[in-house]
Design a binder for these strands. Structure first.
Lengths: 129, 129
DNA sequence: CTTGACCTTACCATCATTGGAAGGTTTACA
DNA sequence: TGTAAACCTTCCAATGATGGTAAGGTCAAG
């Protein structure tokens, strides 16, 4: 399988596959005589694992750790759960932050006439008035 | 006022003040004979405006637009409200995305024993099993 | 045999921010 | 007056994850 086919099969772009290889997240695959990377089903499986982890918001570093645990048949599920739980907490912190912004902005937008007049509580707030 | 004092007065780091100047978000200030930047209260006010806009999650580009509107006394508040409203929508989209991740992860974490055994529904999900 | 679709490496850009190095200036204190 | 600390200056590099592009080699179908 060429890198393009592996990309289509995994949902990870060829560009990112090369990048993941360059940072050591995945192993360098064998090459053909003409220097093309060659992938098999196992590699695609790994790429899909990575894709899914990234989709769930895990950083590449966390993904590397999860990948290591996945490939370690003697891992304790507690370790995985701990990473997931910490990630959930980080996501919830982020959500709370964003909701704080939303709350403030909604209040300001609600107070703003939004017409042709220049008076604008949104700008007043930004200016600290 | 030196850049360090302006930084302390505005909450924007000296580093970022120089950066904002370099990208044209703020005007280049006067300099002393020894080439030090000199700021006054107006400049600090602008920096605080920028700081507040960034805190509310506006991009630097959006901040530049808001700054322009702030300094245009004939602006229509509708224009500002439109930007704020669009930004609220973007934030809410992001929140929904994150909450989707949280929902999935909580479900998986709930199903995972989190003990010394290797069986782990979290990894199984990531692997696509 | 040519054409188009692939592959390769090697850069550059994004976005906002931080860090550091190397060197000049100002201030405070002995 | 000397000096050391705390400033300031510019320039360059890195972050994280990805997209883009350019220059060149390869493969497969017509």
């Amino acid at each position: 399988m060429n890198i393009g086919q592996a990309a289509r099969a995994s949902g990870v772009s060829a560009k990112m596959i090369r990048y993941y290889e360059s940072i050591g997240l995945i192993q360098a695959p064998l090459r053909t005589d003409s220097n093309y990377r060659v992938y098999g089903n196992d590699e695609v499986h790994v790429l899909r694992f990575i894709k899914r982890a990234r989709t769930l918001g895990f950083s590449v570093d966390e993904t590397a750790t999860l990948l290591g645990l996945w490939q370690d048949r003697t891992r304790a599920s507690a370790e995985v759960k701990q990473i997931a739980t910490a990630h959930i907490a980080a996501l919830e912190t982020k959500v709370a932050e964003l909701l704080g912004m939303v709350r403030t902005l909604k209040h300001l937008a609600h107070c703003c006439n939004g017409d042709e007049r220049p008076d604008c509580p949104i700008l007043d707030d930004l200016a600290g008035d």
